[in-house]
Design a protein around this nucleic acid. Structure first.
Lengths: 219, 219, 219, 219
DNA sequence: TATGAATGAGTGTTCATTCAT
DNA sequence: AATGAATGAACACTCATTCAT
């Protein structure tokens, strides 16, 4: 916990380099961690500063307020998942493989980015007041839905998917069956008396989910 | 149980007892509201006392601490959903109807008890530390899973359901596709540019979910 | 500075008596002192709590905010000077004696209540935003002006005062020649190289002021 | 002084010097504004830097500290009023006209330099600790008092003024009846229910004050 | 000469909790 | 059973000031 360099006073300057951009990034990283572990109300600005090896004052200098810092963290998180998803180039795959890939990507993203889920939960607890008026997020989201709808339509034309599938409903379902599993993994472990995060359990659940979606989509 | 003494003003001792119980109930009701609206960290003991028309000291008298009050609220919430579900007597219905009824019940419960979802989210944010060691909850949950497993098995025997369906996976999926829709309805409204709670949207989603589950279960 | 009772642990309870009214009064007294010595911005809530032998939390419990505490202190101060002035029963004296008494009272009040002047200065620095909408103060002030006007009118009828004297202008002048002397006594001491508060200086100034007012009022 | 080099872009060295001086002046001007609006404690170094279009570091470079900046602002303010007053050349006027001119000048100065009053109030709030040991101010002030005393003495010799008038008392009274009117114009507006700054009110008050002083001085 | 980055000590304020009755 | 008074630790946020370039 306490830094081991205590007795080497000349070792490290108090702040590594005067690098505004790096400091901002360290703060954002620390904030994501703190907010996702403790929620918006539970997060402590002091903890964020400490974790970021930054001064508390810097947080207010760069981000104005705890609320706004949360907003920025949240926007970056949303942009990240949408960007990674876009980079899958699903439209270049056959529809069925595209959707299987998408289900797997969503699942993997939740595993690799567990903060995403708790951040979104925090935002919903306060009725999405931080992103409510974010045109950037709306634009990105719209493109995202359109991409999935194009795949569903293409699948329908090719005769592999049911016609008239609504991309919004399908998206929600794909997100649901992964999201719920992770967000409720602690109470789930108690109620279902299982380790939700064991490799076997993860593998089984992903297979179950892929099957569920294929049954939903295919003729 | 005991007849209502409402019109017996001289029955003071009993009234006192009843008042104590009533105070506890008011505190629990107020706590459920406050915790569900603001999360565990965001909830304020003062607000609970005010809303319950009780003295703050009473909360500590009856429930020891804010944490413990949360735990009690949570346990009651879990017991309530499990009790209501048990009262459906699903085992008396044909398997397919039983599962359709269960899907609809789960959906309706989330609508009528929106606090349930946010309470569960709060509990998962702190890694289920309040219910982790609750034998009561574990027992109730085990019975719940068994009931669903019995229905699935019966359906399989009757040739309407696929064989070897795992009640845990099915349960999780049924809960998921409703739970996610409600817990993320605020960010969802922004991202999908829809009113998640309009009667038409609710009706459409329930139909979509029922269809999803039937495709998952049936041969 | 440090309390001498340190080594007598059983001597004093942390809070003397559970007396809300007394606590409020101690806070008000301490606040008057702190605000008058350091201004609204310079005053420290911590210092007020310490001086009042109260907990900082109590200040917020009883007065909501530092700003509101200042407002209450200010209102009490204004009510006090107006009440004391009303208790002089100036209307029972002959007009000339009444005005001499009033000049002396104003002067003495500033001497005995040096906080009054700095509180008023603080309020003017922030453009009287705390008392701007105080109907109580307006009512009390109106009565005050009326009383002085009545004396001036009576003096005019008796042929000792000039006719048509405006009570507002006279009041301002009477207040001015005392108020300025005290509020600027520190810079005044530097500029005029005098001790403004020596008994001789005070006596001389009061005589000068009384003379000034009589020359202003009398035919 | 030096001719304006505005149109000589290659005269860089001189420009740099002029810029430094200009920066200092902008800081002083901004500081006067900020200190007079918010008091010493309420003033913000950031706000001064912003208003002066200067870097915060420059303030410390040129003025060492916020306290010292306040001191410089204050000294300049005092020198300004004394310089302007000296430039009136009152000694060249007949005594009565000289004093009427002086009353009017004092009044006008307060109107044109409203910051002066609040700066002086701030200095008195901290017991004149910034100018207490300023020999320059003391010297200037002494000359100022002597000039007024000379006029009063001359008036006495000419038989228009009362003999033995004390320039300090007269000065204080002249300053008082203008200063108080302006420093307390906000609380005054509430208490006396008048607009203190309307042209009519200003005109009436100046006339009243001139009359008051003439009654005080003349035989 | 000038500047943006960085800081520690404090600021008003809030909180869950306990005391005294 | 019930309550208002009281508290200390912590909270988000701010400030004058200094560092590094």
């Amino acid at each position: 916990m306490t830094p081991p360099e205590k007795n080497q006073p000349s070792d490290l300057p108090k702040h590594r380099v005067r690098d505004a951009e790096a400091t901002k990034l360290r703060i954002l990283e620390a904030a994501k961690k703190e907010f996702s572990q403790n929620g918006l109300e539970g997060a402590r600005v002091d903890s964020i500063a400490l974790e970021a090896r930054a001064n508390k004052r810097m947080i207010y200098h760069y981000f104005e307020s705890k609320e706004n810092l949360f907003k920025v963290v949240l926007e970056i998180a949303y942009l990240d998942i949408r960007t990674q998803e876009a980079n899958l180039n699903l439209e270049k795959l056959p529809p069925k493989e595209a959707m299987i890939t998408f289900v797997r990507f969503t699942w993997d993203y939740y595993i690799k980015n567990p903060e995403f889920i708790t951040l979104v939960n925090s935002e919903n607890l306060c009725q999405a007041r931080h992103i409510r008026n974010s045109p950037l997020l709306q634009e990105v989201s719209q493109k995202f839905v359109s991409r999935i709808q194009a795949i569903l339509d293409q699948g329908a034309r090719e005769g592999v998917f049911r016609p008239d599938l609504d991309a919004v409903q399908v998206n929600i379902t794909i997100a649901s069956i992964g999201y719920y599993y992770f967000t409720n993994r602690y109470t789930g472990s108690v109620i279902f008396n299982r380790d939700f995060l064991s490799p076997a359990a993860l593998k089984e659940r992903l297979a179950f989910n892929t099957d569920t979606i294929l049954r939903l989509l295919c003729l």
